[in-house]
Design a protein around this nucleic acid. Structure first.
Length: 572
RNA sequence: GGCGCGGUAGCUCAGCUGGUUAGAGCGCUCGACUCAUAAUCGAGAGGUCGGGAGUUCAAGUCUCCCCCACGCCA
């Protein structure tokens, strides 16, 4: 038995995520977690909300709430939606947890002791009216290059020129509009990643089986320009984890917090500690997942994320882990994804473009989304969501191929033999041919799932469903029944067993439908098949079942057009 | 501008270290079946693999140049 530690990139607290975010990390991570559990392996699947930083503060202010309250509420909202999508996290934590405070401060202390933290004085813009330092992008002004009057302090969106906040003409706060700004000297901590460049480079080079997307992004950051740069890990904010050196104060750092990118990945570890606390387990329980000196040496750790998160996971977080000099578990495999586009453009949280997770669940059950998103996930390149493709994919695969299979065989059995698995007849050459094909395909399916080849897995699963229809079509029990009812009984018996077989194999993709198939077949036997012949005789003659309701109603053209129009604009 | 990732059938996409007539699903055409959610099954049409040059006995698959789309730029 293998032990799988699985984490999905943690979604930012600021609002509800869209389908592009979902398919880029949480959903494939869930697929893998469910598969590994189904195979009987021990799994700890963690995710959390990423709660610190200026955007959270501003969103809270906009909502008229204290930031703590805002984050607590939004965490609940995201947790509920995750349940709606059947994301099977063992724990859905919060980067603002006390556990993360302690761990983040601990890591900072260790890194400082190892000489990997430097203190740097820099000049930053302070807004007297807002009573805070302003991140570059929250300063607006006129672009010295093109004259655009809403240029941001980091870049002019109009002429794309890179800017320094001090370059702006008539700078003002993007938060309050105040022009009462001044440049102040402030001191910050930097993680000296550059010191660890060779070590990280060597580590990345050893990962020959990682997706090229992952390694190419990492290499770019390692070698581009002057190579890996040190990064600031503190900010002048109120909301965040106070800067401390372990449990001690950090002279000169009073009133500052760690920068969100530093504490967010540490939450992967803290989340495990939250999990033990929430479930009444000992600390040793989470340490055996994270400390190689305390039992985690046989853990296989896999991370899932969109490509925008790759630099933090391939470089910054490993630098934190390695730099601590402590035996923390390092990631074994990083599965990264490209972007899912929406109808010719990008999904966009800030512009409210696309379909958001809550809206998706309002119009259709989770399985529809899970299936389409996973079978079309942006694995090797960006991929595209269009309502036409979604409709035809879901209708064809789920309603016609799988749902109709369940329907045709159960209804036929009911009308000819009643609602119990019929007895009589023996399998012959055609059955053996089906079993041979299913055995081959099952092997291919397992291999793809093991390798996290998501689209390929979906393709194979679909072919497994289709094989049932091919079999029925060729043996035609409705004809056989007329001359040889015993033989028809055998064919139907096999067909009914295929439903259970499909339910088990499909569960990682479509857990709800899988559950309904199992309950219709009146069985709790969800053992992952190794021998197909045995798996297809699990339901014996005489075993009662019920004809289920339509598993997947089709998406009508009217619905599609309605949704197309409804989601054409932007969300408020 | 630099860098990254792509440009393969009408659509969405596969094609590992170069090697027989370039693949899948959808869509389309024709046929079969009638148990089933007007579902299923079979057959077929459809691509000079963005353009050009080169390496090679052999290139979608390697090299160079160009064009196009997208993304990132601490």
């Amino acid at each position: 038995m293998t032990r799988h530690l699985i984490t999905s990139a943690i979604p930012y607290i600021n609002g509800i995520k869209h389908l592009g975010n979902l398919v880029g990390s949480q959903l494939p991570a869930d697929l893998f977690a469910r598969y590994q559990r189904a195979r009987g392996n021990e799994v700890l699947f963690l995710c959390a909300t990423d709660e610190h930083g200026t955007p959270a503060e501003l969103a809270a202010a906009k909502a008229g709430k204290p930031v703590e309250d805002y984050c607590r509420e939004m965490h609940e909202v995201q947790a509920r939606i995750a349940e709606g999508f059947r994301l099977s996290f063992d724990h859905f934590g919060r980067s603002s947890s006390p556990q993360n405070h302690r761990l983040t401060q601990h890591f900072a202390g260790r890194l400082a002791d190892a000489g990997l933290i430097s203190e740097v004085s820099e000049k930053q813009v302070y807004s007297n009216a807002d009573g805070r330092f302003l991140p570059d992008r929250y300063i607006e002004g006129t672009c010295p290059n093109c004259g655009y009057d809403k240029a941001r302090g980091d870049q002019c969106e109009n002429c794309t020129k890179q800017l320094d906040p001090t370059d702006l003409i008539d700078p003002r706060s993007a938060i309050s509009g105040s022009t009462d700004l001044e440049v102040r000297e402030t001191k910050h901590l930097f993680l000296r990643q550059s010191q660890m460049r060779d070590q990280l480079d060597e580590w990345i080079n050893s990962k020959t089986d990682w997706p090229v997307l992952t390694t190419s992004i990492a290499r770019k950051w390692l070698h581009d320009g002057d190579g890996l740069q040190d990064r600031g890990i503190t900010r002048d904010l109120d909301w965040g984890i106070p800067v401390k050196k372990g449990e001690e104060d950090w002279p000169g750092m009073e009133g500052k917090v760690f920068y969100v990118w530093f504490d967010a990945p540490i939450e992967y570890i803290a989340c495990a500690a939250e999990w033990t606390e929430a479930t009444g387990r000992d600390d040793a329980e989470w340490e055996r997942w994270w400390r190689t000196d305390k039992g985690a040496d046989d853990v296989r750790y896999t991370q899932f994320m969109g490509k925008d998160n790759v630099p933090f996971h391939t470089l910054s977080f490993p630098a934190t882990i390695i730099g601590s000099g402590e035996p923390w578990k390092l990631v074994d495999y990083i599965k990264s994804f490209n972007y899912l586009n929406y109808d010719g453009g990008q999904f966009s949280t800030s512009q409210g473009r696309g379909v958001f997770m809550d809206q998706a669940l309002e119009i259709l059950p989770a399985d529809y989304w899970r299936w389409w998103l996973l079978s079309n996930c942006p694995e090797s390149s960006d991929s595209e969501f269009t309502w036409e493709n979604f409709q035809s994919g879901v209708n064809k695969d789920l309603a016609d191929v799988l749902g109709n299979f369940v329907s045709r065989i159960t209804k036929f059995c009911r009308s000819k033999f009643g609602e119990a698995v019929p007895a009589g007849g023996d399998m012959g050459a055609e059955e053996q041919a089906l079993i041979d094909e299913l055995s081959r395909r099952l092997e291919a399916y397992d291999r793809s799932m093991e390798r996290m080849e998501v689209r390929k897995s979906a393709q194979e699963l679909r072919a497994i469903w289709a094989a049932g229809n091919e079999y029925l079509q060729s043996v035609a029990p409705w004809s056989t029944f007329k001359e040889d009812p015993e033989k028809a009984a055998m064919q139907v018996r096999l067909g009914l067993n295929l439903i259970r077989f499909y339910a088990v194999l499909s569960a990682p993709f479509i857990p709800d439908a899988s559950g309904r198939m199992l309950s219709a077949m009146n069985t709790l036997d969800t053992e992952w098949p190794s021998d197909v012949t045995a798996a297809l005789t699990a339901l014996p003659a005489g075993h009662a079942f019920t004809v289920p309701d339509v598993l997947f109603a089709k998406i009508t053209d009217e619905q599609r057009e309605d949704w197309q129009a409804r989601f054409a604009g932007t969300r408020d």
